[in-house]
């Protein structure tokens, strides 16, 4: 349409002559997204912040009464809620440590002359792309004490994986490790392959031992990317819901998201659950903040 207009090199007159100004385009491109996120993420959160100070129950028609900080006070003094946080912390530690050991270990092995490396890496990444709820569900059959392949393969007889309250959390974490160790592997591999080869050659000339090389060369150079993987997985494990909910009904696997879900959608303690949601939200935002700092750090390199 306007292509025929002779262009001048003065940007202001050019913009005025043809089409929209850059500022108008910038706003047109950015503002709808920001508005969309405000309407569908921030506004609901303000809505639930309001409810968190009430005794509202979505299952009844009774009007919500303002109760001030009572919900927050009660939640923070509730030993059961604290126990949910302890369960969550245990889950985060077991599953993230497991993922780092398995993922980083596999990356170390893959960072060599391995035939069909590309194909193997893609195959290893498959579990993390699959739906946690759907594939996680199938682990119920794998863990089954009578017909499970795992007990048969390991010769464990009728070992109770999900049936034993002490074991169930570890069983869920093992499934999580299976799904997400590849994520740590993917990022570690990127870090490992970026370590300059001449550093290893120099270390070899200096007759540095393998341990020295690992702790003084490999680890420090991979650390920033590894940290991204660890923080991200920590955050995801802290929020975990799908796997634990699908695999187990044990109280010993009731992580904080499951407690929140039950409080909101099964017990219909809407006001109280909004308060708990806020406590969880603040913790997640704190981790997000750290995560973004590390993301930007890696980006700058």
């Amino acid at each position: 349409m306007a292509t025929a207009v002779i262009s001048t090199l003065d940007p202001k007159s050019r913009a005025a002559a043809r089409g929209m100004s850059d500022i108008a385009i910038r706003n047109l491109f950015i503002v709808p997204t920001i508005l969309f996120l405000i309407v569908f993420n921030i506004f609901p959160l303000l809505y639930s912040l309001g409810y968190s100070f009430t005794d509202f129950r979505a299952s009844t028609n009774a009007p919500a009464n303002f109760v001030g900080l009572q919900n927050y006070r009660e939640l923070l003094n509730d030993p059961y809620i604290w126990n949910n946080f302890v369960v969550t912390a245990k889950y985060v530690i077991v599953s993230v440590v497991g993922q780092v050991i398995v993922g980083f270990g596999t990356a170390m092995l893959l960072n060599r002359d391995i035939p069909f490396k590309g194909l193997i890496t893609t195959l290893l990444l498959l579990p993390m792309m699959l739906s946690m709820a759907v594939v996680g569900l199938f682990w119920k059959l794998l863990y089954d004490p009578s017909w499970g392949v795992i007990n048969w393969a390991l010769g464990l007889g009728k070992f109770q994986w999900l049936g034993d309250p002490d074991m169930a959390l570890y069983a869920v974490a093992i499934t999580d490790i299976w799904m997400w160790a590849p994520f740590v592997m993917l990022l570690s591999l990127a870090g490992l392959s970026a370590v300059p080869k001449h550093l290893y050659e120099a270390a070899a000339i200096d007759r540095a031992g393998p341990l020295y090389t690992f702790f003084r060369i490999t680890l420090p150079l991979v650390a920033p990317i590894l940290m991204i993987a660890i923080i991200f997985r920590t955050m995801e494990a802290f929020k975990t819901f799908d796997l634990a909910y699908v695999l187990s009904t044990q109280p010993s696997t009731e992580v904080i998201s499951i407690r929140l879900y039950k409080m909101a959608f099964q017990e219909w303690q809407t006001g109280r659950s909004c308060a708990l949601a806020y406590i969880v939200l603040i913790m997640v935002l704190a981790i997000t903040n750290i995560y973004v700092k590390y993301l930007n750090k890696v980006k700058e390199r």
Binding site: L37, S48, F241, L260, Y261, C274, V284, N289, V292
Partner: peptide, 29 residues
Amino acid sequence: VKGEGDLLFFILSTRMLPPVVVAIPMFLM
């Protein structure tokens, strides 16, 4: 963009919200 870093952080942080936390008010609305 004024405050680009803050805006991008805001955008990313919406992705990090636990689904259950968002789902409660969204369900009511």
